[in-house]
Structure formats: C-alpha cells, structure tokens
Computed example of a mutant assay.
Amino acid sequence: MMLPRLLRASESVHRIDGVAETIAQRARRLLRNNTADRLLRGSWIGHPAHPLVVTVPIGAWVCSAAFDALGDRETARKLIAIGSLTAPAAAVTGLAEFARLSTVQRRVGALHLAANVVAQTCYLTSHRCRRRGSHGTGTLWSLLGLAAVAAGGALGGHLSYALGAGVYEWQEGPEH
C-alpha cells in the first residue's frame, strides 16, 4: 500500500516545476511537431514509441542481473553494455513525449527521467568497474542501477496508467 501513495505523492513535487517546464520548452522548440517529432513519438506504430524502446535497455539490465546470479560475469557485462548503449534512444523518445505533458504529468516525468539517469550512471559505472576487473564492485553498482530502473519504471507506469500520458495520442492510427 505504500508504493501507490509514493507514486501519487510524486504528482505533488512542485519544486521541480521550473526545471521540468524548461526541459519541456526546449524539447518543444527543438522538435516543433516536425517529422523527427512524429517519428520519435511513434506515429509510425500508432502509439508512443517510448514504451516499446525502453524494453531493450530494461531487458538487457534485468538479464544482466540474472547472469550475475548465475556467475556468468562476461555475459552480464555485455548485457550492461547493450542496455547502456540503447538507453539514450529510450531517453530521446521519452523527451519527445515529455514535451507534450501537463504540469502534473511533467512532475512525474521529471522524476522518472531522474531515476533513469541514476540507473544509466550506475550501469556505466558498473561496466567500467567490470572492465577493470573489479567484478564485485561492478555487481554492486548493477544492483543499485536495477533499483533505480525499478523506481523509474514504477514512475513511468504511473505516468501512463494513472495519469494517462500518451494514451490515445495517435487514436487514428499511424500516419500514412
């Protein structure tokens, strides 16, 4: 019962309104409802692209934890690299959606973004530790990253399912 309360509380974090609005304005100015905007937002599939794109880094990072648990550190390291290399695409598609959010949705979106920046930082640090032979420290950073991914995912789910971000955005289907 605590998680739903925390997620609802994220809607009231007024202190980030200025930063969130600045990010949204810059994204709107950059994209200006052009072809790149439509592509990043998913007009080609009839719904936002962000939920589809995030499955790659999240899946890679979750699988890396499984391979760590199995003792296959090399596969875990490669999966961390795949997640880290694909996370920017997830961020860009998310920022394209962010530009169109309401104030309350932007608050949750900004926290979602922050959690995912923390996750990416943890996984990049993990990868660096692993490349230097410090697998134990790398595993610790991966676990911290996984916790941040879980927090970011919970916020992203709340943004979509409770606050309706991106819902019916492309009601008429893909553009022809």
Results as ranks from 00 to 15, higher is better:
121 T>H: 06
105 Q>H: 06
110 A>R: 07
169 E>V: 03
59 G>H: 08
23 I>R: 06
135 H>N: 11
125 T>R: 15
154 A>V: 00
39 L>A: 12
131 R>N: 15
100 R>N: 09
107 R>V: 03
122 C>K: 01
17 D>S: 10
142 S>Q: 14
112 H>K: 13
112 H>F: 04
145 G>H: 07
54 V>M: 10
82 I>K: 09
154 A>M: 12
113 L>C: 05
6 L>H: 12
99 A>D: 03
97 E>P: 02
101 L>I: 02
97 E>A: 13
62 V>H: 02
120 Q>P: 00
160 S>T: 11
40 L>Q: 11
59 G>A: 09
12 S>W: 09
31 L>I: 04
37 D>W: 06
137 T>Q: 13
170 W>E: 05
17 D>M: 05
127 H>V: 01
126 S>C: 06
163 L>E: 01
162 A>V: 00
11 E>T: 12
15 R>D: 11
174 P>R: 15
35 T>A: 14
166 G>V: 04
63 C>F: 15
25 Q>F: 07
77 R>G: 13
1 M>E: 15
15 R>L: 14
130 R>V: 10
38 R>H: 15
147 A>F: 01
173 G>D: 01
131 R>A: 14
134 S>T: 08
136 G>Y: 00
48 P>T: 05
3 L>K: 08
150 A>T: 15
54 V>P: 05
148 A>T: 02
44 W>Y: 13
115 A>M: 13
4 P>G: 09
140 L>M: 09
167 V>A: 14
62 V>T: 12
